[in-house]
Amino acid sequence: MSRILAWLPIIMLAAPAFAQRGEGGPTGFNMIGLWSGMYHEDELERTDPGPPPGDYTGFPLNEAGLYHADSWHADLVSVMEHQCIPHNAPYSMRGPANLSIHAETDPSNGRLLAYIIDGTFGGASRTIWMDGRSHPSKFAAHTWAGFSTGEWHGDTLKVVTSHIKAGYLRRNGITYNDNATLVEFFDLHDKYLTVTTLTYDPIYLTEPLLRTETFVWNPYQPMGAPHAYGATCQPAPEIPRPYGWVPHHLPGTNTVVTGFSEAYGIPFAATRGGAETMFPEYRKKLKTMTIPPQQVFLNKFKREHEGPDGQAKEAGK
C-alpha cells in the first residue's frame, strides 16, 4: 500500500502528460511538426508544367465525368473569379505542400481540439477536428478545405471531410462536385508521413478515387505565412475578354485531348480513364490496340541525334 502511495504523485503528474498525448491520440503518433512534400508519386502531373490535356489515366470516370473533362478549357484559369482559387482538400496534398501541422488545444484542460494543417497551395489550411463534433448541416457554407473530423484507428488517423467546394482532381478538367466527400488516412512510416486519400463523387466517378502522397519530416523546413498568397492574390484581367466569358470546348470540338495519346504513344482509348483502364486485366486489351508513335521520345531523339537539316549529327556535336 505504502508503495502505491509513494508512486501516486508521480502517477498523478504523469496523467496529464499522457492525456496530452492526445495530440497524438490514444495509440496514434504525433503529427505535429514540419513535413516536406515529396513528389515522386505522379510527379509529372503534380509539379510544373502539370498534367497534359487529355490525360485522364488513373481516374474511374463515368460518362458524365468524361464529357465534363472534355469540355474543360485551359483558359478557364484566366477568368477573374478562377485566378485566386487555392488547391482544394481532395487535391491540396498533391500540390506544392510543405506542411506545418500544429494542434489546437482546449486551454482549460489541455485536450486536443484539432489539428491544423498549414502550407497547402493558396492558403486553404485544413482544420481536422478531433473533439468528436459532428459535421455541419447540409445548408452550411462549403469551403475549399471543407469540414474535417478525425479519429484514431490504432496508428492511423482517419479523416472524413465534407462541405468542400467543387473543384479539380487533376488540373486538366477532371473535377468533382460539391457534394463529394473525402476520406483520408494518415500513417507514419519511420520519418515519412503517408496520406492515402479516397474521393467519393458518384456524379463523376464510378468508384472512389484512391491516391497517396508522401511527406518527409523536416524540422529545418522554412515556412512562409500560410495565408499570404490567399490574402494578397488579386485577380487581374490579363487579356481583354467579353463580359461574362467562360471558356470551354463545345461537345465534339476539343482537338487537344488527343495530344497526350500522341505525345506518349498510348492508345487514345486508354487515355480516357474509366475503371476498366485501371486494372491489370486491361493490359491484355492494350495489346490488341494500335500504339501510336511516341512523339515525345521521337522529338527528343531528333533533337539529340539529328541536325536542323534532318541529317544525323556527327558524334560529339
Binding site: E81, H82, A124, A141, W144, D178, A231, C233
Partner: peptide, 28 residues
C-alpha cells in the same frame, strides 16, 4: 475575403449558404 472564399455571402433561393466561388460555379 481570402483565397477566393468568404467575403460577400450569398443566400440562394434554394440550397445552402454560398459565396462568390459557388456563384461562379453556377454561372459557369
Amino acid at each position: 475575403e481570402i483565397s477566393q472564399e468568404g467575403g460577400t455571402m450569398v443566400i440562394p433561393g434554394h440550397g445552402r449558404l454560398c459565396d462568390e466561388a459557388d456563384v461562379t460555379e453556377y454561372r459557369d
